[in-house]
């Protein structure tokens, strides 16, 4: 269980993360999606106490991360697979982690086997690893302490399609056993393959969140009101589920426009927007969010 409430990070005039709130629930793989520089990594660093937030707070397993005793035994963290000493062997990286956490040496072998690093590969220095191998090593490191929660920043980066498939199996299994997974990606198709829940972030703000299926094939009605809380309770009273949220307090309701309109009218809620949510809305939104980045890719 990860709870993030109102996390904000400012660097001078620049707001890298702006009032971000979401939950990652046990049993679910929560995908944190956004273009490069959207604030995913900063949010994750704040969650594990490496970056002090300007405002807001977060808890992992009901406690601020910094107050967890021996956090590696409860929370597996991979923030940057390349942030390992290039002169250390893969096995040594895991051995150091196991020492800190107080784990037996066999755990290192078990994790190497789990992520598919051979004995020969594990004795090579991390500086000679491909990005995919570093990711596997990072996953092994995150899983060392048999944690309940995984926080993984761009773990699929550098993995080939087979590797992504493998990671999906691994994380799904972890979630099915009751684990909480929060993983970030800047690639929609990657997240689509792995995650159950989506939190979409752009320019530091959350622009959409909800179950993957709902967000990707958004049917239903997009509705916005002057008083968002009143709208929510009006929908609730009419038995209409809110399946997702969008920027500017807009809700995606699981009903047609007439039903939503009636529900709002019954509770005298003033609507400012009411229309059918277009399909593939997430993809459209994500494309517009990443427009700046894709322009860079063309010129690069």
């Amino acid at each position: 269980m990860i709870v993030i409430e109102g996390l904000t990070k400012r660097y001078g005039d620049h707001t890298a993360v702006d009032d971000v709130s979401f939950h990652a629930e046990p049993g679910r793989v929560t995908g944190f999606l956004g273009p490069n520089g959207a604030g995913k990594s900063t949010t994750m660093r704040m969650t594990v106490g490496l970056t002090p937030p300007s405002r807001g707070h977060s808890t992992v397993l009901d406690a601020p991360y910094s107050q967890l005793a021996n956090p590696g035994r409860n929370v597996g963290v991979l923030l940057d697979a390349s942030a390992q000493h290039a002169g250390r062997t893969g096995r040594e990286v895991l051995t150091l982690g196991a020492m800190v956490m107080g784990l037996p040496g066999e755990r290192v072998d078990a994790m190497l086997e789990l992520v598919g690093l051979t004995s020969t590969e594990s004795k090579r220095r991390v500086g000679n690893y491909s990005l995919g191998m570093r990711q596997r090593l990072g996953i092994a490191h995150a899983l060392l302490g048999d944690p309940r929660v995984l926080i993984l920043d761009e773990p699929a980066n550098g993995l080939d399609p087979a590797g992504i498939h493998w990671m999906r199996g691994l994380l799904r299994d972890f979630a099915e056993r009751g684990g909480t997974v929060l993983l970030s990606s800047h690639l929609l198709h990657e997240i689509e393959v792995i995650a159950d829940e989506l939190v979409v972030i752009g320019r530091g703000r959350i622009v959409a969140q909800g179950p993957k299926a709902e967000l990707l094939h958004a049917a239903g009605t997009l509705v916005r009101a002057l008083d968002s809380a009143a709208l929510k309770s009006a929908l609730d009273q009419s038995g209409i589920a809110v399946v997702a949220t969008r920027a500017g307090d807009a809700l995606i309701a699981d009903a047609n426009t007439e039903q939503v309109g009636r529900a709002a009218a019954a509770e005298r809620v003033v609507l400012t927007e009411l229309r059918a949510a277009e399909g593939a809305g997430l993809e459209q939104m994500f494309l517009s969010l990443t427009a700046d980045d894709s322009r860079e890719e063309v010129t690069a």
Partner: peptide, 20 residues
């Protein structure tokens, strides 16, 4: 692996790990 089958949350005291 052997760790893959058992549920993660069976141990109620999982947070009672002593400090390093």
């Amino acid at each position: 692996t052997a760790t893959a089958s058992n549920p993660l949350t069976t141990d109620p005291d999982f947070r009672q790990v002593p400090r390093v």
